[in-house]
Design a protein around this nucleic acid. Sequence first.
DNA 1: ATTATTGTACTATAGAAACATAACATTAAT
DNA 2: ATTAATGTTATGTTTCTATAGTACAATAAT
Lengths: 124, 124
Amino acid sequence: MVQFILDPKAGVPFYRQIIDQIKFGIASGSLTAGEQLPTVRALAVELKVNLNTVTKAYKELEIQNILETQQGTGTFIGKTVIKIPEKERSKKLQDICNEFSTIAFSYGFSADDIINELQKKNRK
Amino acid sequence: MVQFILDPKAGVPFYRQIIDQIKFGIASGSLTAGEQLPTVRALAVELKVNLNTVTKAYKELEIQNILETQQGTGTFIGKTVIKIPEKERSKKLQDICNEFSTIAFSYGFSADDIINELQKKNRK
DNA sequence: ATTATTGTACTATAGAAACATAACATTAAT
DNA sequence: ATTAATGTTATGTTTCTATAGTACAATAAT
């Protein structure tokens, strides 16, 4: 389960906030494989947004193989696991971290800031 | 000095990313009072965006008394002390960290993997 | 079989964001 | 005085975001 929340002031489109929260929910374990998400209509009502906005979010996640939808039944967290060849693994990690810290630095955060924040989350 | 970077995948409008990076840059000390920013045209070329996009960002910050512009001369960091509420700052850090750990998780990396990699770089 | 629930599809409207392009206004350098 | 560099302003176009409203399609429940 995930408590969805939209922030109109975030500067991030609603449908993207929904996408992000689902993705992060999966990554953090709050959402597990096979779990059913709220119906498009239910979530639209809950978040006070249009049906199409939720649909757009779900659909994009289905295209990414993160969600599985069954018309008439519902939308579910998929079982997709991304596998990377061991050789590429450490290079990929470096790439991600480089991009990550570069962006964080551009906002004036230090490496320690980031590490602290990640450790904070890690403890939870 | 600040190294500006735009992330097209962030879902945040370009002009807002520029605004944020300047604001947070000032707050963190990477940008200091009186310092000249890149010219609107130079930054537009550097970031590969339209002149109007940079102009929009600079203008909004001038309205907020964060920047001071002199036509014919340039755009400068103002002397008005800008304080970003700690809440906002930590939220930004969270946002950035969430986005990246989500990406990292989706590739099968753990928070520890990221932290280790960052610490490795940090020691260099 | 019928009905309710679910996802899907389409049209139309409005505003924001970004772009291309062009011109104008002020200042500093020559 | 002229030129170059800077910020300013303006018009028009395209794409994205979000909305409202309507209808269709597949599944589950009765």
